[in-house]
């Protein structure tokens, strides 16, 4: 279903407005955004964000636009990443009765 996709990995400044800057960019430039994963890294001043996007002619422009955002410190395309987690992120969050992550049963 999402085999023509690619992951963009970002390091961003961690504050409440940063997600708005990134999703707003995709909305106003009419880029497709298939999935987002995000988590705090290090001392909490930065976050790492994974964006699942279509691997098409817009990819180069998307990365350039992301790099222009002040709060985006790094933006790189990760064509070597497995992105099956985007298909069902719940598996990475939900635990079973023993407190084990559901994705271990994959």
């Amino acid at each position: 279903m999402i085999n023509n996709n690619v992951v963009i990995e970002l390091v961003v400044r961690n504050h409440p407005g940063v997600m708005l800057h990134i999703t707003g960019l995709f909305a106003r430039k009419a880029f497709n955004l298939e999935g987002i994963l995000c988590g705090v890294i290090g001392d909490g001043t930065t976050s790492r964000m994974y964006l699942l996007v279509k691997d098409d002619d817009f990819l180069d422009q998307i990365v350039k636009q992301l790099r222009k955002l002040y709060d985006v410190l790094e933006a790189n395309v990760r064509s070597d990443y497995d992105y099956s987690i985007f298909q069902n992120p719940e598996l990475a969050l939900r635990t079973d009765d023993d407190g084990q992550l559901m994705n271990t049963i994959l």
Partner: peptide, 16 residues
């Protein structure tokens, strides 16, 4: 104001 100016500024700040 912060949300409204995201798409029309080079960058914007909300001072916390």
């Amino acid at each position: 104001t912060y949300g409204l100016t995201v798409p029309i500024t080079k960058h914007n700040f909300f001072v916390r």
